[in-house]
Design a protein around this nucleic acid. Structure first.
Length: 429
DNA sequence: TCTGGGGTCCTAGGACCC
DNA sequence: TCTGGGGTCCTAGGACCC
């Protein structure tokens, strides 16, 4: 049986959330700014019509704002997160857990395959739309198609063309009409085709969605990648990307901010870093993860054209993956001190926590798990000794000739000692 | 003067093994 | 030490998403 996917997406999400609590903003051009009020990250339909682009720097659109009395708001992420939770919650009544993917703060993918025989899909989608508007006051559009990529495209169409009344169903559209529609949409609108790839496609004379759907998938694979090849198939109605109802654990947590003003002192960087670690730490705990590796980075502004761009990072690997805030903060502070240089005007800094799930994270569990990575030579030596102490030589596994420069892999089925590896290890130290 | 933040995945090429 | 091919792993960087 053919698959059917729907994408439900909140219109101008941040602006719509703000309007929900401040109806005076209705029918007026409104924008929401990023952190530090740096640039526009959400625009009402009215603001879009005035030509305000996504990500436009605030200082560049000041005149336009004054001229048209555009309402400007700082972002309130707590509010948006709460509205998002309710939005996804309402949709969860229409499908099972396995049929819903919380794709982003303002989008849910639904697998409607099982509902096609007992429901009129258009009607079903309309009901969702009306409920979300009635219950939490947010306007949404729904796109329906044979694949996630097609559902995305259908959603785009529903947003662009008022005559769809918010729901576009490509699944039940005849091929001929669909081809005509696809031939009118630029290939850059396709999910997974960004600015760079669109440019390259245009050069190959693949200009519209229709062109891409008709392109030689094998050629696309060699010229681009397996991802783009999948996109081509998805546009033809062959579903290659499934619903991810149970998202895999996070691999990393990033916390960073731009500074309002340039920063030159180490103490300021350290203060900021400690703050970011706390932010990242909250998310680490919320997902019940451990931190295996910590990266701290600092950057100058790429827009300071009169100075060389500075962008460096340093990392630290925890011998025991940890969820100890003090330990992480302490290391982060040390790292930032290591990479600090005077006479640089820093614009941004931050931390990256590489995450591990607790079950695979303890040294004494290593031998029971598939793969463990431990980076950096100095840490590696300590790990080597720790494991050596605990398990003795006979259980030591080393892909050791690669040791100095690589991560260290240890697999259960490799638990034997390789004399060459040891020799190599000793030589490098 | 002022230009977001948080993620994932893929590939090419280097390093190293046998 | 040289020759060389096949295979694997890792990293950096690029591209994308919202």
């Amino acid at each position: 049986m053919n698959k059917i996917f729907a994408l439900v997406d909140i219109n101008n999400c941040y602006v719509s959330c703000e309007r929900m609590f401040n109806p005076k903003l209705n029918d007026k051009p409104v924008i929401v700014l990023s952190n530090n009020d740096g640039c526009a990250v959400a625009r009402s339909a009215e603001a879009k019509a005035l030509g305000i682009k996504m990500g436009a720097p605030f200082f560049q659109i000041k005149d336009l704002i004054k001229q048209h009395d555009i309402q400007v708001l700082s972002s309130n992420y707590e509010l948006y997160a709460e509205m998002s939770r309710r939005f996804h919650g309402i949709l969860s009544a229409y499908v099972t857990d396995k049929e819903q993917e919380h794709y982003s703060i303002d989008e849910s993918f639904l697998d409607l395959t099982a509902y096609q025989n007992n429901f009129d899909l258009l009607q079903y989608a309309n009901t969702m739309k009306q409920h979300i508007l009635q219950w939490i006051g947010l306007p949404v559009c729904v796109g329906i198609g044979h694949s996630k990529t097609e559902a995305k495209l259908a959603n785009h169409l529903a947003k662009q063309n008022p005559h769809y009344l918010g729901v576009c169903n490509l699944y039940e559209m005849d091929m001929c009409s669909k081809e005509q529609l696809f031939a009118q949409i630029d290939v850059g609108e396709v999910w997974g085709v960004g600015y760079k790839q669109a440019k390259k496609l245009h050069k190959m004379n693949i200009n519209t969605v229709f062109d891409l759907a008709c392109a030689d998938a094998q050629l696309i694979r060699t010229q681009f990648s397996v991802v783009m090849q999948r996109t081509v198939l998805e546009l033809r109605g062959i579903s290659c990307i499934d619903i991810e109802h149970n998202p895999p654990a996070k691999q990393q947590i990033i916390a960073s901010r731009s500074f309002g003003k340039r920063v030159t002192q180490l103490s300021d960087l350290q203060e900021a870093i400690i703050y970011y670690v706390q932010d990242a730490y909250k998310r680490l705990r919320a997902d019940d993860l451990l931190c295996g590796c910590l990266v701290a980075f600092a950057q100058s502004s790429p827009f300071d054209s009169n100075k060389a761009y500075f962008n460096e990072s340093k990392s630290f690997v925890f011998l025991q993956p940890t969820d100890n805030l003090l330990e992480i903060s302490h290391q982060a502070s040390k790292l930032i001190a290591q990479l600090y240089k005077g006479n640089i005007e820093y614009k941004k800094c931050g931390v990256v926590l590489t995450c591990l799930e607790p079950k695979s994270a303890h040294i004494h569990d290593l031998l029971d798990t598939d793969v463990v990575k431990i980076q950096k030579v100095e840490r590696l030596m300590q790990s080597f000794e720790a494991i050596h102490e605990r398990y003795g030589k006979s259980k030591l596994a080393l892909g050791a000739s690669k040791l100095p420069k690589r991560n260290w892999h240890m697999k259960r089925d490799q638990l034997s000692i390789n004399p060459f590896s040891l020799k190599s290890l000793m030589r490098t130290h």
